[in-house]
Design a protein around this nucleic acid. Structure first.
Lengths: 148, 148
DNA sequence: GAATAATGACAATCTAATTGTCATATTAGG
DNA sequence: CCTAATATGACAATTAGATTGTCATTATTC
């Protein structure tokens, strides 16, 4: 017998939706001057700091179509923020990873975010943040593990 | 001295982003057969169960442009899911509220969501959900209260 | 070695949302 | 009470992120 109400759980969902919109708006302000779109940013985030994935792999992780990721990755390649590396498991589909420029740029993004995050979370009891983190991670794992 | 790490706080943000995308996809599957878009849904959610707002008021709440809400509300009006009521504070700008059909429809949506939510949250300790709820609400209030 | 599947590229389309504009109605100030 | 400033609704064009569909080519598997 869990004793949280359905409405409480539902509100968590609702808050996630609202927070996303507000955070996205805030975050875009932070990084718009860097010429990085939120799609770019998502890919950079998956690759940071030293991960290497193929385009189709990124698409699976990001849960979008490979075509969409392809366009984003091509844009990042052109800007020299990511690079292709030989893929031992697949001759044609190269591994994508950050260049040092890309890593540096994403660290700039991270730094700005962290500032904002620090301000946003300031004064919250540590336990709350930890519990929230763990709860959200659990939800995420459940949703990701069961991709309908 | 708060003792959560910045990275922990940052992960909360990151999780919110990922959860939003997964939840949105999941939620859209639930309601797509009802002919309700996510914009429709957001408006219905604001009006449920008995709230009445003008279009500009809804736009402020939803943090989108009034033009966008206008289009959505017009669509809902045409479908008979919301209705206009005289506004004591403004002659021209009517109050929008749910019709009984709209309320019923949104309850269907709610019901489906609740099922999914129950499945998703099943087995989580009640305290975690409550703490998460409160933490997210606080973040939301901070972001909403300080609209840049 | 042939059949099947995966990849990259490209085009068209979609949806949620934005910005800009206009006429008109409404409100608030003098 | 009248005028100036503002708010509203309607409409058009555009944007961004993403989808679906298609095609040629390359890999993988049987």
């Amino acid at each position: 017998m869990t004793s949280f109400t359905n409405s409480e759980a539902y509100q968590v969902i609702w808050h996630i939706r609202r927070l996303f919109r507000l955070l996205a708006a805030r975050s875009d302000e932070h990084i718009s001057d860097l010429g990085v779109t939120s799609a770019d940013r998502a890919v950079l985030e998956f690759l940071y700091p030293e991960h290497a994935f193929t385009v189709p792999e990124l698409a699976v992780r990001y849960r979008v179509t490979r075509q969409h990721v392809q366009v984003t990755v091509n844009r990042l390649l052109k800007r020299g923020l990511v690079e292709q590396r030989p893929n031992p498991r697949h001759l044609r589909s190269k591994l994508i990873r950050l260049t040092s420029r890309g890593r540096k740029l994403f660290e700039t993004i991270l730094g700005r975010d962290q500032e904002a995050v620090t301000a946003l979370f300031g004064g919250l009891p540590a336990g709350c943040v930890e519990t929230t983190h763990n709860t959200l991670r659990t939800l995420l794992e459940r949703l990701e593990g069961d991709p309908q």
